[in-house]
Design a binder for these strands. Structure first.
Length: 564
RNA sequence: UGGGGGAUCGUCUAGGGGUAAGACAUCAGACUUUGGAUCUGAGAACCCAGGUUCGAUUCCUGGUCCCCCAGCCA
C-alpha cells in the first residue's frame, strides 16, 4: 500500500489543531508557514517541515505561506531565496501569492519595538556584548540587571531612534526586552530585540542599520500574516514563553500558537547547516548538489523524486522524541517509486567478454525487451544481440561458492531476453589468473518467445552486445559517513567519520545503445543493478549516470552472511 | 546539581486501565526470464522501582537515562 491515504495519518500536532478547530479558536481557521532563512540550501529536514506545514494546511482547508526569515543581513543572499523557492516548488508545494519576507515587516516591527519602549517593556542597553553575557548569569545562578535598565522611557525612545538613524557604531547599544533577569528560563533574562549592524541587507539595502532578532521578529511576523499554528523544532521550546510574551505585550490581534516537533535526523549523514557548509566549503563533496548530500539539490541530482521524498516524510511521522531514521527507510521510498516508473535498461558496469562459439560471427539479432514489467503500457524496445557480449564480472565465478546460481564452467544461465548459454571454457590472464573471457555455447531453441524458452535455469543475467554497447561513466555512491551518527561525540570531529569510499567512479561501463541518447534528468533501472539518474555532467559523447540506489540484493546478503 | 522537553520491537511511529498496531529492517517460504518486484508467514518492544486497582505498559509517587538552553544566530 502506498502513500496516498496514509499522508493524513494523525500525529500530536494534527490532534492539537483538530481540537483548536473544534473549539473554534482562530475562527476555525488554519494557517501555517514555512519560514526558511535564506542563508543556506534546503535539506531533507526542511522537506519534513514543508510536508508538515503545507500538508496540515491542505488537510484543514487552510493556507501555508512561504516566508523568508531574513533578519540577519550578514549571512543572507538573494541567491539563496531563489534556490529555496526552486526547491520548494520542486518538492511540489505551492505558496500561491503568499511569498513573504520578514524584512518586509521591518517598519512594523520597529513600531512594535517603540510600543514596547513606551510601555516600559523594553530598554536600550549600552553594555558590551561581553558584559551582557557576564550579566546574564548562568544556568544555576540568576543574572544581574544592567545599570541601563532603568533609563527613562524618553531616553530609550531617543536612543532607539538614534540607533535607527545610524548615530552609533555596531555593538554600541542594543534594544532589550525588560522581563526578568532572575528567570530560570535564560531566554527571559532581558533578551535582545534589536542590534546595530551597519551592513547592507540583500533586500532592504541601506535602509536599516538596526535589525530585529529572531525572537522578536518571528512571533510578530506570524501575527502579521495571521498564522494560527507556528510549527517549529524542539530547540525553540523554551523560547515559547518569550514568543507569547512578545505577542501579549505588543497586544496583537492574532496570537499564533507555537508547537514544537523533533527535527529529522538520518543515519550516516549530517543535517546541520553548519556541518553541511563545512563539507561543501572544505571540498569534501563537490558542491551543494553533490548526490551524497541530504540537501534537496543533492537528492535531486542523486535521482530521488519529490514523490518519494514526500512519501518518506509522511511515513516517518511527527513526534517530539529525538530520533535517527535509518537510511533504509529513505531508500525504500525511492525504490518503491522508481520500481513503478523507471524504464529498464541493460548496462554492464565491469565488463567480462563472453563469446558464443556456435553463434555466427557476422550475425546480429534484434531482440525484444520489456521496458517495465510493472507497467505494460511502457512498451518494448529492440536490443541488439551478437556473438560477442559483455556480462558483469560478478556474474561469473570459475569456482562457484555454494548457492551461486550464475555462470560458471559447465553451467547454464539465461541471458535476459535472449538465449540460454552454457559456459564451456574460461580464458585467464596469464599473469593475474583472472578470467578475461568466457567461452559459451548457446541453445538456439531457447530464444525468448520460443517454446523452448521456458526451460528452467537457475539464473538470468544481463548483458550488452560488445559491438553495439556504448561506454558511459557511472558514479556509485556509498554512505557519506562510516558512522551512523557522525555528530554524536564531538561536533568538530565529525569529519573523521567521512567515508573515503563514498564515491566510486566507474569508467568501464558499457550501456545498451539507445541509452547513448538518455536525457539528463531521466531515470532508469539498470536491470539487476539499481536505479540510475542521468547527471547534468553528461555530454553528447559520454553519458554520466548517478546511482540513485541499488536494487535489493539477496545474493549480496548470502555472500556476506557468515554462515552461508 | 536552574529551566524546558523526551523515554514503546533493531529503527521510526500508533495506541491506551483488560489481546500493544503499522512501516522499514531481519528471517523463512511461495512465485519469478531482474537473486528485482509481488505474495505468505515468523521472530521482535511498553526505562526502573514502589503505590492505587480484580487487573498498570497506560493512573499516582519516586528514581534513572537522553536531548535542548548561558548569540547582538535562527
Amino acid at each position: 500500500m502506498s502513500a496516498e491515504g496514509l499522508s493524513s495519518s494523525s500525529d500530536f500536532i494534527r490532534a492539537i489543531i483538530t481540537e483548536d478547530v473544534r473549539a473554534g479558536k482562530f475562527g476555525g481557521r488554519v494557517h501555517t508557514r514555512f519560514p526558511p532563512e535564506p542563508n543556506g540550501h534546503l535539506h531533507i529536514g526542511h522537506a519534513k517541515s514543508m510536508c508538515l506545514n503545507f500538508g496540515v494546511a491542505e488537510e484543514f482547508h487552510g493556507l501555508c505561506n512561504l516566508r523568508f526569515d531574513d533578519t540577519n543581513p550578514t549571512t543572507e543572499h538573494m541567491d539563496y531565496v531563489r534556490s529555496i523557492q526552486e526547491d520548494v516548488r520542486w518538492l511540489g508545494f505551492d505558496w500561491g501569492d503568499r511569498l513573504f519576507y520578514a524584512s518586509d515587516y521591518f517598519e512594523q516591527l520597529y513600531q512594535y519595538a517603540v510600543k514596547l519602549i513606551r510601555k516600559g517593556k523594553a530598554y536600550v542597553d549600552s553594555l558590551s556584548a561581553e558584559e551582557i553575557r557576564a550579566f546574564r548569569g548562568t544556568l544555576t545562578e540568576p543574572g544581574k540587571e544592567s545599570p541601563y535598565r532603568t533609563r527613562s522611557i524618553e531616553e530609550n525612545l531617543d536612543l532607539f531612534a538614534r540607533m535607527r538613524a545610524g548615530e552609533f557604531p555596531d555593538g554600541a547599544h542594543v534594544l532589550r526586552a525588560k522581563i526578568d533577569m532572575a528567570s530560570p528560563n535564560i531566554n527571559l533574562r532581558d533578551p535582545t530585540l534589536y542590534r546595530i549592524r551597519h551592513v547592507s541587507h540583500y533586500r532592504t539595502g541601506a535602509a536599516w542599520c538596526i535589525y530585529p532578532t529572531y525572537d522578536f521578529a518571528h512571533p510578530l511576523s506570524d501575527s502579521i500574516e495571521g498564522i494560527t499554528h507556528s510549527l517549529c523544532t524542539l530547540e525553540f521550546e523554551d523560547h515559547r514563553p518569550l514568543y507569547d510574551w512578545i505577542l501579549d505585550e505588543c497586544e496583537v490581534a492574532c496570537h499564533s500558537r507555537q508547537i514544537e516537533f523533533a527535527r529529522l535526523n538520518l543515519s550516516y549523514t549530517v543535517m546541520s547547516k553548519r556541518k553541511l557548509i563545512q563539507l561543501v566549503d572544505g571540498g569534501y563533496v563537490r558542491g551543494w548538489d553533490d548526490p551524497r548530500l541530504p540537501t534537496l539539490k543533492g537528492l535531486r541530482r542523486r535521482g530521488y523524486t519529490p514523490e518519494a521524498i514526500r512519501a518518506f516524510c509522511d511515513r516517518i511521522g511527527v513526534a517530539k522524541r529525538d530520533s535517527i531514521i535509518e537510511m533504509a527507510q529513505l531508500e525504500h521510498a525511492i525504490r518503491e517509486d522508481l520500481n513503478q516508473r523507471a524504464p529498464r535498461a541493460m548496462a554492464v558496469l565491469r565488463p567480462l567478454r563472453l563469446v558464443i562459439e556456435n553463434y555466427p560471427e557476422d550475425r546480429v539479432e534484434e531482440l525484444e525487451a520489456v521496458n517495465n514489467p510493472e507497467d505494460p503500457k511502457m512498451g518494448v524496445r529492440p536490443i541488439p544481440f551478437s556473438r560477442v557480449l559483455y556480462i558483469e564480472q560478478d556474474d561469473f565465478r570459475e569456482v562457484p561458492p555454494p548457492k551461486f546460481f550464475r555462470l560458471s564452467p559447465g553451467k547454464e544461465v539465461r541471458l535476459r531476453y535472449a538465449y540460454i548459454v552454457k559456459c564451456v571454457d574460461v580464458i585467464k590472464d596469464p599473469h593475474t589468473g583472472n578470467p578475461v573471457e568466457v567461452r559459451c555455447t548457446y541453445d538456439p531453441e531457447t530464444r525468448s518467445g520460443l517454446p523452448q524458452a521456458n526451460r528452467k535455469v537457475k539464473a538470468t543475467i544481463h548483458w550488452v552486445s560488445a559491438a553495439h554497447a556504448v561506454p558511459a561513466e557511472i558514479r556509485l555512491y556509498g554512505p557519506l559517513f562510516t558512522k551512523a551518527n557522525p555528530a554524536e561525540d564531538d561536533d568538530k570531529d565529525f569529519l573523521k567519520w567521512l567515508n573515503p569510499r563514498s564515491l566510486e567512479i566507474v569508467n568501464s561501463a558499457r550501456i545498451e545503445p539507445r541509452l547513448a541518447q538518455a536525457q539528463p534528468g531521466s531515470r532508469y533501472q539498470f536491470e539487476r543493478l539499481g536505479y540510475f539518474f542521468v547527471d547534468p555532467d553528461s555530454t553528447d559523447e559520454r553519458v554520466v549516470f548517478n546511482q540513485t540506489v541499488a536494487l535489493r540484493d539477496a545474493w549480496a546478503k548470502i555472500e556476506k552472511s557468515p554462515n552461508k
